[in-house]
């Protein structure tokens, strides 16, 4: 067997996987979407029809805010944890992976226990001020839920990069007179950027498509994954569900591509 054929053999499992779980379903989905009453135009209902468009905007804003908040929390925490050794550090880091093990539905329940009608926050505020503060079923509840499962994975990604950062880079910048803010801007954040991008992209994509948490909490708000679910099961409009699915995938992909190209331009300092 020559080496070329051997290479093909190595890539075969991935090729089969891609074909079976990406190309074929997407093709089927595309056909399904195009076979609806609106035909090709079905792909664009996500922007042409007000109900879908509003839902898309809500989902996008929620995902962007979640990503920004996650990155902010994770970047600060990663830098704090990176160069400090303290008792219980290993335990803390392993506990951070804990939320990763929860399915979205469980995260949803946790948010309800926290901010639901009989939740912790509600009981406390009721006894203090007399009003029962409930936010679990709002966009804010969704945001908290997304934050809960996004922060750990993004934090671990950025932490790995922060630990690899050469401390003499910061010392060199200090010797040149750079303030802590300038050091963040010119030295630390550029060095952490690839990890922040990877983590942020993961966070954004997850937030755009998260279903379990949304299913538990989104009783009053319509995020796109809920919309797909409703179209598919309640309205039994499979072609519409398929069209929205493809549009959601495409928009998520495009948003990540734009973010990547912009960010890469920024980091190269051109």
């Amino acid at each position: 067997m020559d080496s070329r054929r051997f290479d093909l053999l190595l890539i075969l499992p991935l090729a089969i996987f891609t074909l079976a779980f990406l190309v074929l379903p997407l093709a089927r989905l595309t056909l399904e979407a195009g076979s609806g009453p609106q035909g090709i135009a079905g792909f664009f209902v996500i922007v042409t029809e007000a109900r879908f468009r509003n839902s898309l905007i809500v989902t996008l804003i929620l995902s962007i805010i979640t990503t920004v908040a996650t990155l902010a929390v994770a970047t600060v925490a990663a830098q704090t944890l990176a160069n400090r050794r303290f008792f219980g550090r290993g335990l803390l880091l392993s506990m951070l992976t804990f939320p990763l093990a929860f399915p979205g539905v469980v995260v949803g329940f946790l948010i309800i226990l926290f901010g639901g009608r009989l939740g912790l926050v509600g009981s406390v505020t009721k006894s203090l001020t007399g009003t029962n503060v409930v936010f679990a079923y709002s966009l804010f509840g969704l945001f908290l839920g997304y934050l809960y499962f996004s922060v750990p994975r993004v934090l671990l990604t950025i932490l790995a990069a922060a630990e690899k950062l050469d401390p003499s880079l910061v010392e060199a910048a200090r010797s040149l007179g750079a303030s802590p803010l300038a050091i963040q801007r010119d030295v630390v954040l550029p060095a952490l950027f690839p990890a922040m991008y990877t983590g942020g992209a993961l966070c954004f994509a997850t937030a755009m498509g998260a279903f379990g948490t949304a299913f538990t909490l989104a009783t009053t708000v319509d995020v796109i994954p809920m919309l797909i679910y409703t179209e598919f099961t309640l309205a039994t409009n499979a072609s519409m569900a398929a069209a929205i699915s493809i549009a959601l995938g495409f928009i998520t992909w495009a948003a990540l591509a734009i973010a990547r190209s912009r960010a890469m331009r920024d980091v190269s300092g051109a």
Partner: peptide, 13 residues
């Protein structure tokens, strides 16, 4: 002025 063994040059510049 400081010069380090690892150079400590800013790789993004």
């Amino acid at each position: 002025g400081m010069v380090f063994q690892s150079y400590a040059l800013f790789p993004n510049m």
